[in-house]
């Protein structure tokens, strides 16, 4: 019983002879925006994939409120309250914006075949639709309900990705490099949305390559380098941490 909210405990991931993540431990507190950063190849995406159930760790565990979630398939991890987004704009491009978010409501309104045939699921459908519209409104996408997701602008697609995750009403949202390819204006808007999401009670863990983008965003930051924990602390601490500066500025010297 560690009593922590999301506890990453001694995670190890090996691919063949390569150790991508080596004995990594950290804790994400409830209601925080937590950043996981590091130079390219630090193992942060691998860590992310282990937390979301995409990879099964070689050893170590991930616990949510003391329930082990590591090693479970992705949909089981999602059902326990940890939902991820994907890099770039992974959406159901061929479906409408509303339908995208409706897929997000899957867990709370588990569709049934018999009920669907006989029309007994009217209440669930109404509930799912209301939830979906709520999520769309939250991200300012209500005007695009009927459009195909693939035809949205880049920024809106990112927001829709988060709306799909939010519609699932998770405890934790994992964001995979949410700022990649965004201009400063879009970045600013995205940050506002994240604050709003956090204020609605959802814990956020995000993986980001660009250190500066998340300094003003995160309550707490974990820095990885070469698969290991390098430093942890608030933005101010991390900004001035000598090892972090070394890893980011002098990274070239370490590359063997």
């Amino acid at each position: 019983m560690s009593g922590h909210f999301l506890h990453i405990d001694k995670l190890v991931m090996r691919f063949g002879g390569l150790t991508a993540v080596d004995n990594l431990s950290f804790v994400v507190e409830q209601g925080a925006i937590h950043g996981l950063i590091g130079p390219n190849g630090a193992g942060k995406t691998t860590t992310f994939n282990m937390i979301s159930g995409f990879y099964r760790p070689t050893s170590g565990t991930v616990r949510l409120r003391d329930g082990v979630i590591s090693g479970l398939p992705m949909h089981e991890v999602a059902r326990r309250g940890v939902v991820r987004t994907f890099q770039h704009s992974t959406l159901f491009a061929e479906l409408s914006v509303l339908d995208n978010v409706l897929v997000g409501t899957h867990m709370n309104f588990r569709p049934g075949i018999a009920a669907a045939i006989f029309g007994l699921d009217a209440e669930d459908r109404r509930g799912a639709r209301a939830r979906a519209e709520e999520a769309l409104e939250f991200f300012g996408l209500l005007d695009f309900t009927g459009e195909l997701a693939g035809e949205l602008s880049h920024g809106h697609q990112r927001a829709l990705g988060m709306a799909v995750a939010m519609a699932a009403q998770p405890d934790v949202i994992l964001l995979d490099e949410p700022f990649t390819g965004m201009n400063p204006e879009e970045t600013k808007r995205m940050m506002e949305l994240m604050f709003k999401l956090r204020d609605s009670g959802i814990t956020i863990l995000l993986v980001e390559h660009d250190m500066h983008a998340i300094m003003g965003l995160c309550d707490r930051i974990t820095v990885m380098s070469f698969g290991k924990l390098l430093a942890e602390g608030g933005p101010q601490e991390i900004r001035t941490h000598p090892d972090v500066i070394e890893a980011y500025l002098g990274g070239g010297r370490h590359v063997a």
């Binding site: 479906l95 897929v103 899957h106």
Partner: peptide
């Protein structure tokens, strides 16, 4: 009826982006 139901939507979701569908708990 099945296709026009949430079940049918989930079928489509599985087709187009199975990883994203999985992350929504499918």
């Amino acid at each position: 009826r099945i296709e026009r139901s949430p079940v049918g939507l989930t079928f489509h979701a599985v087709h187009w982006q199975d990883k994203l569908a999985q992350s929504a708990g499918v």
